[in-house]
Simulated scan of single mutants.
Amino acid sequence: MPVDAALAETWIERWERQQERYAVEREERFTVVADVVEQVAGHRPRPLVADLGSGPGSLSARIAARLPEAEVLAVDIDPLLLALGRARHPRVARWVETLIGRPGWLDALGLDRPLDAVVSSTALHYPPPRTLLGIYRDLAEVMRPGAVLVNADHLVPEEPPLAELARAVERRRSQRRGADTAEDWSQWWAAAARIPEFAELLAARARQVPPCDGDGNGLSAARHAELLLRAGFRQAGPVWQYGTSAVLVALR
């Protein structure tokens, strides 16, 4: 069910603005992710990078621009977002439709060699801890020694007073930038539902995309790091943070 490229560009631009409402300093966060991937895998010939929960390819496109020789796998379960990404960025990535964490999900990636890097943005705060541990273990088995996992996500401090302050910092930054007045997640999807060209994709989405808790698993950077170490990664910790928006890195 392909989407017209011009239509996809319009809706991805709206997606980018909508996402800025939720991710403070989103572009800087993406830049940090690309910095880490380039530092660790940029010297390798044709590095293999998987973007988990890629959506329409916001992060995949930035990784491909930074590392033109890389092979990028954009992995998501949402048929509409994947169709938008394919139409807007046809040569940026290989688009893979699968539910991350489902038994056998790695088979859909069709890996022909170990991964040099795994990246993700605002996707790994959804799976419950047990599922997330399984995902990290799966990844550890298909990443080469020295490979890197980079997770840009909402990682809230465990201590309530610090969590409250982190959220306040985010809120004030968003108000100064005017991001809190932008179209939100629900409004974007409601508007998309009125586009006739999206009807079949949205019907497929209703069948395939499992409901998720808007608050996610609530895990802090420290809890993510603990799960990563249990899964077989040798080091894990944050390298950048603004409010609750963080970039967590783990080395295989």
Results as ranks from 00 to 15, higher is better:
17 R>L: 15
205 R>S: 14
31 T>R: 09
160 P>Q: 14
96 V>A: 12
162 L>W: 14
34 A>G: 15
67 L>K: 04
118 V>N: 01
158 E>C: 10
186 S>V: 10
191 A>F: 03
195 I>P: 05
59 L>T: 11
243 G>A: 05
88 R>W: 09
250 A>W: 00
77 I>Y: 07
95 W>R: 05
24 V>M: 11
43 H>Q: 04
246 A>Q: 10
84 L>I: 11
89 H>W: 04
66 R>A: 06
25 E>Q: 07
251 L>H: 08
141 E>Q: 09
121 S>Y: 03
25 E>L: 13
216 G>H: 04
95 W>Y: 12
226 E>Y: 05
132 L>F: 06
80 L>D: 08
132 L>P: 02
207 R>L: 15
25 E>D: 11
221 A>V: 07
65 A>S: 11
70 A>G: 15
174 S>Q: 08
133 L>M: 05
86 R>T: 09
156 V>S: 14
191 A>E: 06
91 R>W: 13
180 D>W: 04
107 D>H: 08
236 A>G: 02
210 P>T: 14
60 S>R: 04
224 H>V: 13
156 V>W: 11
1 M>D: 15
59 L>N: 00
193 A>E: 07
237 G>R: 01
88 R>N: 04
83 A>I: 12
206 A>Y: 02
49 V>P: 12
120 S>K: 02
220 S>Q: 10
136 Y>H: 05
111 L>F: 14
156 V>M: 11
118 V>F: 00
